[in-house]
Structures are given as C-alpha cells and as structure tokens.
Amino acid sequence: MKIVVTGSLGHISRPLTQELIQQGHTVIVVSSKAERKPEIEALGAKAAIGTMEDMDFLSVTFQGADIVYAMEALHAGSFHNHDLDFVAANTKLGSNYKQAIEQAGVKRVVHLSSIGAHMAHGNGILAFHYQVENIIRQLPDDVSIKFMRPVGFYYNMFAFIPVIKTQGAIIQNYGGDEKEPWVSPLDIARVIAEEMERPFDGREIRYIASDEVSPNEVAAILGEAIGKPDLRWKVISDEQFLNGLLNTGMNPKTSKGLMEMNAVRRGGVLYEDYYRNQPALGHVKLKDFAKDFAKVYNA
C-alpha cells in the first residue's frame, strides 16, 4: 500500500515508518524540514517537504494514498510562544487535514488523537483533540477513520528532571496511589501499524497504553533507576502548579490548560472512557522506560 505518514521522524512516526517499510509498503513521510530528507530516504521512505499549515501541499501529498496517518504536531517551543493559541492552532491543523483528505479522495485515515478526546470540556489542553475528532468525523461517510487514543506518553516524564534536580521531588497538582495508564511511542507505532493491516469499517476508536502505575509508583521506579530510592511524588495546589508554569515563561493560556489537564486526572475522571474501553497493555513497561530516563537524567 501507499501510506502517507505525518509527524516527520518524531517519537511515533520514525518507528511507524520503519515498521511499515519492513512490511513492504510504500511510505511517504511529511516533514517541514528539508534537512530531514536524507534521513527519511535512508529509512527507505520518500520525503514530502512542506508544512501542515499548507493545505494545498497536504492535498497534493495525499493524492493516491491508500492510507493517511494524520497527527497534529506544533514546533518545539510552542508552549512558550505567547503569540500562539495552542488549542486553536492544533484545531486548525485538524481542519487542514480534513480538507486535504477530502480533496485528495483518500478513503482510509488513521488519526492520532488522545486520551480525553471524549470530553467536550474540562480536559484542559486536550480540548483540541475533541475538536479535531469532530472535524474529521465530518468527512464523507465513505471515508473510514480509525481514531487512535494513546494515554500519557512516558517521555513527558523527562519534564520532571529539572525539578527533581533542584527540589528533590516530582511536583505536580495530582498524585497518590490511584493507578493511571502511560504509553511508549513504540507501542503506539506498533498498534497503528497493526490497525493499518486490519479492515477499515466506518469510524472506530482504539485506546493505546503500555502500563498502569500510580504516581507514587512512578516516583519509586524512577527514583530507583536514578539512584534516589527516596524520591517522592509531592502534590501541590492547582494555583501553585499554575504559578510554577508561569514562572518558566510559559504562555498563560497554555499553562492554564496543562493545569486543568492534570486536575482532571484526579479521581480518574480523565480515564473514565478509557476504562470503559480498556485495551490490552503493550510491551514497554515503566521499568523499561526508567532506563532511558536514567540516561537522560545522568547526561
């Protein structure tokens, strides 16, 4: 099959591209950076250089594709851009995808959504996933769509490192012993490749997770990996957490969205639909990721 993969050679798109090429598919990787072209071609894929903001470019790139894998991804530093509305900008990318897919006549789409996409409000920065899913659902009925909803990414834990080093703890506005799901990009890529081989039938949703651990267990596992067995997960108020983000220079609206996203994790509200449609867990466990965490921590 001819498959278009967006997301350049990111955490998910790289292993996904490698998997699809191994399966014998023709893969076109969309990247905004021309310097990525040699690396993309070295994997055996074709490079399409352009931006997700350019709907005409997307439409041309999608022409003749058997499947399009679509994900929204803003450039690094977006959280600190005070001129950017993070939710609105991602929602616009979803609208571009919808128009380009329709213009190109693509009939099978795999869309990377997220945990929290079932919530119309109260999910903070995850709101754009709800909005984009609804935009893409407006495609004609003969377009089959698989919405992939991964949970929190392990690599988001790298953001804990500066605070661990300066304050000796993981500090968030939620915590405790209630388990929550986490996921490795490798398991996401594996599931997406698997779904591309399966029949497409209307509109489907699949959650993706690798492990289920509590915040306190996260602290214990990461602490053991970095040689700090006494590492603790400290819970602070929403206001304190928000002020901490603002003090880093983060966009105020984005900061509020992150605070709200964490707040809805308390009591498992964010995960209610996940547990109604609980998936089989993937291969990469938190203890596996902890080895990578330790390497970054000690670098």
Rank of each mutant, 00 (worst) to 15 (best):
N251A: 02
Q138I: 00
N262D: 12
S95C: 06
E194F: 09
I221W: 01
H80L: 03
E178I: 09
Q63S: 14
D54F: 07
R232T: 11
T166N: 10
S144G: 04
T166P: 05
Y154D: 12
L245M: 11
V151P: 10
L139D: 01
K146H: 14
K33L: 09
T17D: 11
K234R: 08
D85M: 05
E35V: 14
V30S: 00
K256Q: 14
A88F: 06
Y154P: 08
I28W: 10
M261N: 04
D211T: 09
T6A: 04
N247C: 08
E260L: 12
N216A: 02
T91G: 00
Q240R: 11
I205T: 13
N298F: 06
Y274L: 15
Y130S: 04
G175T: 06
P215D: 05
P15V: 06
N262C: 12
Q99L: 12
A127Q: 10
E260S: 08
E39C: 07
A209S: 02
Q172R: 13
T91E: 00
M71H: 04
M55S: 15
I3L: 10
N123E: 15
H80F: 08
I40M: 08
N251T: 01
T51H: 09
G168F: 07
R266I: 09
I171N: 01
Q103S: 15
D292V: 04
V151H: 11
M1S: 11
L186D: 02
I226V: 14
M196H: 02
F293R: 04
T51F: 07
Y130F: 13
V106K: 01
A88T: 09
V296A: 14
H118W: 12
V30W: 00
V191Y: 05
S114F: 06
A88H: 06
D201S: 15
N96I: 10
S255V: 06
P38V: 14
A47M: 02
I171W: 00
Y207F: 13
Y69K: 08
R206L: 15
Q22I: 11
H283F: 10
K179T: 13
A73K: 09
I115Q: 04
R265V: 14
A209R: 01
G202S: 07
I221G: 02
I125A: 10
I115K: 02
G124C: 13
Y274S: 01
A263I: 09
D177V: 10
V27Y: 11
L112S: 11
Y155V: 07
K287R: 13
Q240I: 11
N81L: 08
Y275L: 11
H11A: 15
G24P: 07
D292F: 03
E239L: 13
V235C: 05
Q167D: 08
T248I: 07
I226R: 07
Y271S: 11
Y130H: 14
Y69L: 11
Y130E: 00
N251M: 03
E72A: 14
R137G: 00
Q23A: 15
G24V: 09
G175D: 04
N216M: 06
A117F: 05
S78L: 02
Y174H: 14
P162N: 02
L93Q: 09
G94P: 00
F293T: 06
A290M: 03
L246Y: 03
I226T: 08
P15K: 12
G105Q: 07
V109M: 05
Y174T: 13
V213F: 05
E41V: 12
N81E: 10
Q99H: 10
E260Q: 14
I221E: 01
I236V: 15
